[in-house]
């Protein structure tokens, strides 16, 4: 007897920042496993094509414009999921403002820091609280995209490390607080080649000096759909029913020291 090939059949998933990169990879992978997917991207120009691609492949999707730091937008995305597909089972918060180039902490522009606070901290609060009643009703799960930088810190983009860490502290606490409600909360720390990472790769020694690849046993940078997506599917599905409060580092084995 083969495994059930569609692990998210009948489930509805919201993915923020799904207009490209890791968010898109996760959205496509969830759709491949039968999920109805709400693409919550900052611009419909990027979100709409992803929804269209899912439908082209035979899945169900809806695109909605969503600024993740906006209470109204996040709640509208949740409402869209429920009104279009009847429920919300999984909230994946992935969107993030630009992290900027490597900078000393004293020189990080305010705008960069604000972007981190808004899209990682405020947005996590908004996504979690807006989704909560629905996740509770369905025994659903919350997935936050964090990073190894949220564990080991970043000498290049220190504000990024700070907020990615804060998200983990939040996730663990919500896992404890919402465990009795049947809601699981986990994080993923991916390394994947995305447009945002390509930008960082231009100036960060992590890439320019091959620091990242040198420490990656699998000798490649991840693909959002083939490498990161399936891990999100795992966390969203019943396969991980006995896991909560965890961070899965999906980086080809680069970061093991924890």
């Amino acid at each position: 007897m083969a495994t059930d090939t569609r692990l998210l059949d009948g489930k509805t998933v919201i993915v923020t920042g799904a207009g490209g990169g890791v968010g898109m990879g996760i959205a496509l992978a969830c759709a491949q496993h039968g999920a109805n997917v709400v693409i919550a991207a900052r611009r419909t120009e990027t979100g709409d094509p992803v929804a269209a691609e899912i439908e082209r492949r035979g899945g169900r999707a809806r695109s909605i414009r969503c600024d993740v730091a906006s209470h109204a937008d996040v709640h509208a995305a949740v409402d869209a999921a429920v009104s279009t597909f009847g429920a919300l089972d999984v909230m994946v918060h992935n969107a993030l403002a630009p992290v900027g180039p490597p900078t000393g902490i004293e020189d990080v522009p305010d705008e960069t820091f604000r972007g981190m606070v808004g899209t990682a901290l405020r947005a996590s609060y908004l996504c979690a609280t807006a989704a909560y009643p629905h996740l509770r009703a369905n025994g659903g799960s919350l997935i936050l995209l964090s990073s190894a930088a949220g564990i080991e810190g970043s000498p290049y983009i220190p504000a990024y490390g700070l907020v990615k860490a804060a998200q983990r502290g939040l996730a663990k606490s919500l896992a404890r607080e919402w465990g009795p409600d049947g809601i699981r909360v986990n994080c993923i720390g991916p390394v994947a080649m995305t447009p945002a990472v390509e930008e960082v790769a231009k100036t960060s020694p992590v890439f320019t000096e091959g620091l990242l690849l040198n420490r990656t046993p699998l000798r490649r940078i991840g693909d959002p759909e083939a490498d990161i997506g399936p891990v999100a599917v795992f966390l969203a599905s019943d396969l991980s029913r006995y896991m909560t409060g965890q961070t899965l580092i999906v980086d080809g084995g680069g970061f093991l020291a924890f």
């Binding site: 896992a175 465990g179 046993p217 896991m243 909560t244 899965l248 580092i249 999906v250 084995g253 093991l256």
Partner: peptide
């Protein structure tokens, strides 16, 4: 794309 990891299977 995961290796060297420790996964807790312990209900959190």
């Amino acid at each position: 794309y995961m290796t060297g990891q420790t996964l807790m299977a312990d209900g959190g």
